[in-house]
């Protein structure tokens, strides 16, 4: 974040000596044109490696995510570069969000990590499959049929999985929800809920009416949280 800011500043002061809001809009126009240029002159760039490198480094410097230079029909360089870029981003997202979500992230959240590029679920799945060859401890797990990526060494117990399944409905679990849905005693529910807080899989919400709620951080990105 810091590095990006510095670069952004130096570019702004060199390229345009105007004010910030203007620049932001101009930069985005500029970025769009560069992206369009890249796609249009795909073959020319491919044939001229030096130009290609300079061009891509310039893009990177003014904050264009390389992945926006690709689409599924037209590729710069290797056909698979698109997927390699996704691999890279998946690793970054997992590392950055580990402390927020305890190291478990759904494929849907991963997709949201690519706001500037249109990538499909199948692209993501293909890339995650490619990543397996690195044996990075990135395991695919299923929560109520939904694919998630686990990037930390601790495996989920079946009780923990059941709680995440309950969470997938409303975003949270609580002792009373677990009693109704799984028939668990208060003792057992509290033991497992707190264990999941301990390993960073759930966040506590003490301001709900009636009882403490335990939220799945996967719901951080849900805008339609119903209390």
């Amino acid at each position: 974040e810091e590095v990006k800011d510095c670069r952004y500043e130096s570019v702004t002061s060199q390229l345009f000596k105007k004010q910030n809001e203007e620049i932001t809009s101009q930069l985005s126009v500029f970025q769009e044109r560069l992206i369009a240029f890249a796609k249009e002159h795909n073959n020319d760039l491919k044939q001229n490696p030096d130009l290609k490198i300079k061009f891509l480094r310039m893009c990177s410097r003014i904050g264009i995510d390389p992945i926006t230079l690709f689409d599924r029909q037209r590729h710069l360089f290797d056909v698979n570069d698109f997927y390699y870029e996704i691999c890279l981003k998946v690793i970054e997202i997992c590392r950055i969000t580990k402390d927020l979500n305890g190291g478990i992230i759904s494929f849907e959240e991963l997709l949201e990590g690519f706001p500037t590029a249109k990538i499909a679920m199948e692209d993501l799945e293909k890339s995650v499959d490619m990543l397996q060859t690195l044996n990075g401890g990135f395991d695919i797990i299923l929560i109520k049929g939904k694919k998630c990526l686990r990037s930390v060494p601790t495996e989920l117990t079946s009780d923990q999985t059941k709680i995440l399944e309950v969470c997938s409905v409303l975003g949270y679990a609580s002792a009373s929800l677990l009693r109704v849905n799984l028939g668990w005693t208060q003792y057992r529910s509290n033991a497992i809920l707190e264990e999941m807080v301990a390993i960073g899989l759930l966040w506590i919400d003490e301001q709900a009416v009636g009882e403490t709620l335990f939220w799945d951080p996967a719901w951080i990105h849900h805008s339609d949280i119903g209390i």
Binding site: I204, D205, Q207, L213, W215, W219, I220, I225
Partner: peptide
């Protein structure tokens, strides 16, 4: 900002 546990 709309995630309830953020406030605990």
């Amino acid at each position: 900002y709309s995630f309830p546990p953020l406030y605990t």
